[in-house]
Design a protein around this nucleic acid. Structure first.
Length: 580
RNA sequence: CGGGGCGUAGCUCAGCUUGGCUAGAGCGCUUGGUUCGGGACCAAGAGGUCGCAGGUUCAAAUCCUGUCGCCCCGACCA
């Protein structure tokens, strides 16, 4: 391809709205252009890279026996109502109506669609296992799209779905996927750490995320120092998270519950400042609700003042709850901002106590009265004596750097970008949509499913975030828009002839070549070549040409080497083959 | 959804506080010339509904109201 025949709108200046490096570079190098919040055009360079990423994904999917299909992005709402996700997915779901007022959605994921497809044609255990995948646009009406391609409303996703007659078969495919994912990220040249993620209905090791460690990431992963344990923050367990019961509450020291005026201090920090206590001496009390149809159950969750409630862990204890709405909670008698555990003496609620909160012998906590807290709170004195029955002790908080991994090792925290997710689904969708098969004994059974997603756009973001330098992008060879950029100092005369010839010669060897045929000063061409980050650059200039040579420079190295023209094609193809 | 910020040339921004005559700069673009190995220089040009609507005023980019869009922090979400 010739530079003047394509569209590579590089810019010297960084657009104001781009904050993270990958976003700035994608715009400056002319990879993408924003159309609206979280919606982007893919320009030629960006699209070339995207297609290479997708090609790698396809090869690895096909290699483990997954078969590509394509499903629509536009889906009938009806299908999603059958699994209730139409209601459960919330405002993240794009909803629209067609001209007949029929409700439609834009798919944020395709479990319903693929399960419905499979139930239509697969009836026998002889047809299973089966793995189908697609690479396709997904739509999510994100509350706040941000950070360029990191969080967007329309994006590509590779989503694969597998169907099985047994957990063993599911596990086999899961392992194959896991292996394929490792190879995909490796071939794309981005680091990706598999971490334990929330496991859903099957439990155990049923879910892994692949995270690229990077400061711009929105996820937090926790690793043990010895590298043997890695999980996302939501999932991360700790060495002493379980085992305690109410009976372990520290004995009651002497002293009465003491009310103290704390006007306007509705959170831990101001209370600590006002009363000169440490967060770890406080008990943080949060109110959640479980809405089961018409009935509503209140959940009061207590963690130590310096800890955070982990909603996923709490959900495992109490079922599908959510943070209580401020107004309704107040109406029910919770003085939001000043709630203490003993509120359960007044309002019917289920109490869940984190072990560390339980072990605070004398605590400061809310007085259940606006602008008041209490000191000298003790579980045995002030609560358990009366209401031991409904309370449970459970690990419901995020781990902190002070915690130890389940295996006892020290923990480290990293931010990262989620690139992919493998997940054992179970029978949630096959049950809801009737995806059943007949087994050898003519028994009808629900298929067991797994699902496996990758965000190709995020792979690109991760590559740019982790490899760029102050001059611009440094594409990994495997996903670079072009392998080589040929930069004639002057695109005329002998230099032009050689550039054109090399272009053909390299292309015939399957090399992707860009010739900078612009009538520009060399400095401009060099700066642009660095910015768009093509891994190899061939400079054709009088200096070396007189000796029958051209300069070959790798983007990540400062120095160019001189290569004789007749050896160039071999040298280039070798470099491409040996570089990822 | 809560908080903050911004919409002026293709891009980055000034002008707005204190209303005033023809709305500016740099980059980019066009033409001509001189240059030519790390974002050249000279000259001449093209390019603007000042986001949109309404209001105040003799007069609005500037003040007021509404609205749309975009960005950031948080909440939500995987």
């Amino acid at each position: 391809m010739y530079w003047t025949r394509t569209l590579i709108p590089t810019t010297r200046e960084t657009p104001a709205e781009a904050e993270i490096p990958s976003h700035q570079l994608m715009i400056r190098a002319g990879l993408i252009r924003q159309v609206s919040a979280g919606v982007y055009d893919w320009l030629p360079l960006g699209w070339r890279s995207m297609q290479k990423i997708c090609a790698i994904i396809r090869q690895e999917m096909n290699a483990i026996g997954a078969e590509e299909i394509h499903m629509p992005a536009l889906l009938p709402a009806q299908l999603w109502k059958r699994t209730r996700r139409y209601f459960d997915y919330g405002p993240l779901l794009f909803r629209l109506a067609d001209r007949k007022e029929a409700e439609m959605i834009l798919g944020p994921t395709h479990e319903e669609c693929v399960t419905e497809l499979v139930q239509a044609y697969v009836r026998s255990h002889k047809q299973l296992p089966l793995t189908l995948y697609q690479i396709q646009s997904k739509f999510r009406d994100e509350a706040r799209p941000r950070n360029g391609l990191l969080r967007v409303r329309e994006f590509f996703m590779k989503d694969a779905y597998s169907f099985h007659t047994s957990l063993e078969s599911l596990h086999e495919t899961y392992q194959a996927m896991y292996g394929a994912y490792v190879r995909i990220f490796q071939r794309c040249g981005v680091p990706a750490i598999p971490v334990e993620a929330q496991s859903g209905p099957i439990g155990g090791d049923a879910s892994h995320e692949f995270i690229c460690p990077c400061d711009s990431g929105e996820d937090v992963i926790v690793r043990s120092e010895d590298g043997s344990y890695a999980a996302n923050l939501e999932q991360a367990g700790r060495a002493d998270g379980g085992g305690r019961t109410l009976a372990d509450a520290p004995a009651a020291p002497p002293g009465e519950l003491h009310k103290i005026h704390t006007p306007g201090a509705t959170s831990i920090e101001p209370v600590c400042r006002l009363l000169h206590v440490q967060p770890r001496q406080m008990i943080k009390t949060l109110v959640f609700t479980v809405n089961a149809g018409e009935s509503r159950q209140w959940i009061v969750a207590c963690v130590r003042g310096d800890h955070e409630v982990n909603e996923a862990k709490l959900r495992k204890v109490v079922g599908n709850m959510e943070m209580a709405e401020d107004r309704t909670a107040r109406e029910a008698g919770f003085v939001i901002g000043f709630v203490g555990p003993h509120v359960v003496n007044r309002v019917q609620a289920r109490l869940v106590i984190d072990p560390d909160a339980l072990m605070v012998p004398v605590a400061v906590t809310g007085a259940n009265e606006a602008d008041w807290h209490v000191t000298n709170f003790n579980w045995k004195n002030n609560l358990l004596a009366a209401r031991c029955g409904d309370a449970v002790v459970a690990d419901i908080r995020n781990v902190t750097p002070e915690d130890r991994a389940p295996n006892g090792a020290k923990l480290t925290f990293h931010k990262g970008i989620e690139l992919g997710h493998v997940f054992k689904l179970g029978t949630k969708y096959s049950d809801a949509l009737g995806a059943t098969y007949l087994d050898e004994k003519q028994q009808s059974r629900s298929m067991i499913m797994g699902c496996y997603g990758i965000g190709p756009g995020r792979i690109m973001v991760a590559a740019l975030e982790t490899r760029s330098d102050s001059d611009g992008i440094r594409w990994p060879m495997g996903i670079a828009p072009f392998h080589v950029v040929i930069t004639p100092i002057k695109y005329e005369g002998r230099s032009k002839d050689i550039a054109d010839r090399l272009h053909i010669e390299l292309q015939e060897r399957g090399v992707d070549v860009l010739v900078d045929d612009r009538d520009q000063r060399p400095g401009v061409k060099f700066k642009d070549a660095d910015l768009i980050g093509i891994p190899l650059r061939i400079v054709i200039g009088e200096k070396s040409l007189s000796g029958g040579q051209v300069e070959l420079k790798r983007r990540e190295e400062k120095q160019a080497i001189l290569v004789a023209l007749e050896n160039l094609a071999d040298t280039v193809t070798n470099l491409i083959r040996t570089n990822v």
